Amino acid sequence: MDKLRGGSLVGGGSSSGMGSTNPGPEQQQLEQYPKNLIEQYLRASSKIKKFERAGFFKRFAPSVGDVQADFQRLAYSFEESGILQYAAMCHIGYAKCESYGGAPQRESEAYLRAARSFLGAHNESGQLHLRTRHSEFREGALHCYHRAAERAVDGCVFKAAILRELKQLQRQLDSTSSFASPTHQIHDLEISAETCGQRGDFRSALQHYDDIVDNVYERRGTRMYGELLRRVEVLRLLLLVHLNLPPARQSPAHIKLIEYYYNLAQFEARPCSANDGGSVERPGVFVPEQQQYALAEITCAWVERKMCDLKHLLRDFGAEFGDLSGVERQLLKVMHVELARSY
Rank of each mutant, 00 (worst) to 15 (best):
S14K: 08
M1W: 13
Q105A: 06
E233P: 07
G12N: 09
A248P: 07
E194T: 14
D174R: 07
A110N: 04
H134D: 14
C97Q: 02
P247V: 09
L74C: 13
R171P: 02
C300T: 12
R116K: 15
R164W: 00
R270V: 05
E26L: 15
A152L: 01
E320G: 04
S192G: 07
S108G: 02
L332M: 10
V64I: 15
D316Q: 12
G82W: 12
Q172E: 13
D210A: 07
K96T: 04
L245Q: 07
A265K: 10
S46I: 10
G17A: 11
S15E: 13
E233W: 05
R106I: 04
R282F: 10
G277K: 10
L229F: 02
L243E: 03
I212G: 02
E52V: 06
Y145V: 01
L119K: 14
A274C: 11
R116Y: 07
R53L: 13
Q292T: 06
Q32H: 13
V287Q: 04
A253L: 12
H312M: 15
H184F: 01
D276H: 11
I38G: 00
F51L: 15
M224N: 04
E31P: 01
Q168S: 07
E194I: 11
L119A: 10
L313W: 12
Y260P: 06
E194S: 06
A296R: 01
A75F: 03
V153F: 05
G226V: 03
G278I: 05
N263G: 15
G140H: 03
K3A: 12
V241R: 00
R315K: 11
F179C: 02
N22L: 11
S177K: 03
S251M: 11
G200S: 11
K3W: 08
D70P: 06
A54Q: 06
A54N: 05
E218H: 13
C144H: 02
D276Q: 08
K50L: 14
E281S: 08
L295P: 10
A110E: 06
F286V: 09
S325P: 00
